[in-house]
Design a protein around this nucleic acid. Structure first.
Lengths: 245, 245
DNA sequence: GTCAAGAGTTTGTTAGGACATATGGACGTT
DNA sequence: AACGTCCATATGTCCTAACAAACTCTTGAC
């Protein structure tokens, strides 16, 4: 019965369940816990670590939600995760790339205040014709065009007039302004690139592009951002982990 | 302070937290709780329903994880969800369409035992050359070709020899056989259709197609199914809700 | 030998209580 | 008028405790 060497620090401000989850996650990524391995039962684990069972359960639940562990009543908890990639989080492409250590660059094509059209207004739940920021960017990685991104942000949410988006990601700007993104709805599909799009993405008219439409909400439930993005499918794929509860 | 009329049935086998979550979810979908509304605090809600606070929290947490509610410490819990579509669950396309009340039909193009090639073997974590079922299907909706699906299932997991996939979905077959899918890894992108693919999907060579690669794991952590699917992007889009924890 | 009943194991659900911490507004000071 | 402090509020974390339900394995009957 593999029982990883986890230790908790009670004087740390980091929640106990989170400390445990982090260490278990690391153990799985490092291969100390291999897929198929069963971990000790909750009661024993809690006892060994000097924690209560609910706290131990909370730690395990976090990893279950990430798709790294599965529980079965009467049986135990087993490792599933094939150590490929971390769960998709609510971050922007910019953050993703930056963490991956790749040379991401952004070109701002357009950045101005416009009147919201019907689609943007309905997605952002603002009145048609109201003031929204329009932001067109081209993202390149290692010199290669990767994504063409168009975003709308209600003027009431944030002022983008003096923000330099060649060095700052949109989500990064929100975080700095105290706006905490919590939920996003996404729709992913594909279509042919139009002439202007293809030129910017370094391809030809009619090339297939991956399309993503996204609306993000903050911790007050306000719609904060609506975007339509185009990706070059030969350079980008969208990865997710689904977990059944 | 909107406080929905929720009632719990203690003699029901359905967990209390789930009963509460279901009714809150319905209230949101029916518009009784509008986006932006704040619900009563956990302690009051628990008291009114005769539940303990942990149970009430569990109910709310379920909806927070679904992206329908957001919590803010010191402030309260608010409704986010724009009542568009339910969360993406770990179901197959067949289930999705069936629930949508559309006329989904399946044509089995190929269904045989083959030796696992390198890719399938590595995804399914079986030895290269070992026995796997190969299943090629064409899904049509309302008479229109929608998806071309290729799936591999290890022979050790399930015997597909006598299964009629024109009437049974793959996931449905797993459930009937006592295999419970828990986690799936997906990669979504796009490319041009090849000649044979385009013909089956009712288009032309070079048409853009949405591609999805998926590996599913059951509640023992076993890889159960690996599939590569092609979708017609004019008829299908992949929708998700991301939630930041 | 086969199958069913029962015991043991492990997660699932629920309760009740306590203290911590972030938020926002009220109030008072500068 | 602007700023900072304090307090009420609501969620976040953690604990102890108990019983329920699902699964596995062993035991016993036929």
């Amino acid at each position: 019965m593999p029982l990883p060497d986890v230790v908790v620090n009670r004087s740390s401000p980091v929640p106990l369940y989170f400390q445990v989850a982090e260490q278990l996650e690391r153990a799985i990524f490092e291969g100390k816990l291999a897929p198929g391995d069963r971990i000790a039962n909750e009661v024993a684990l809690a006892g060994d670590l000097g924690l209560s069972r609910p706290t131990m359960r909370q730690a395990i639940q976090l990893l279950v939600d990430k798709g790294m562990l599965v529980r079965k009543r009467g049986v135990g908890t087993q490792v599933v995760h094939p150590p490929i990639k971390r769960t998709v989080e609510l971050t922007s492409l910019y953050d993703d790339l930056k963490r991956g250590g790749r040379q991401a660059e952004t070109q701002v094509l357009d950045q101005q205040l416009v009147e919201a059209d019907e689609v943007a207004a309905s997605r952002l739940k603002v009145a048609e014709g109201s003031s929204v920021w329009k932001l067109d960017r081209l993202r390149t990685v290692d010199g290669e065009p990767l994504a063409l991104m168009r975003n709308f942000v209600p003027a009431a949410i944030s002022d983008l007039s003096h923000v330099d988006f060649t060095t700052t990601g949109l989500y990064e700007h929100f975080r700095a302004g105290g706006i905490h993104l919590r939920v996003a709805h996404q729709t992913i599909s594909a279509r042919r690139a139009e002439t202007a799009e293809a030129r910017l993405l370094g391809g030809r008219k009619g090339d297939p592009v991956l399309t993503m439409e996204r609306t993000s909400f903050d911790d007050s439930g306000r719609a904060v951002e609506y975007g339509t993005h185009l990706y070059r499918p030969d350079l980008y794929a969208y990865e997710t982990t689904l977990v059944d509860r």
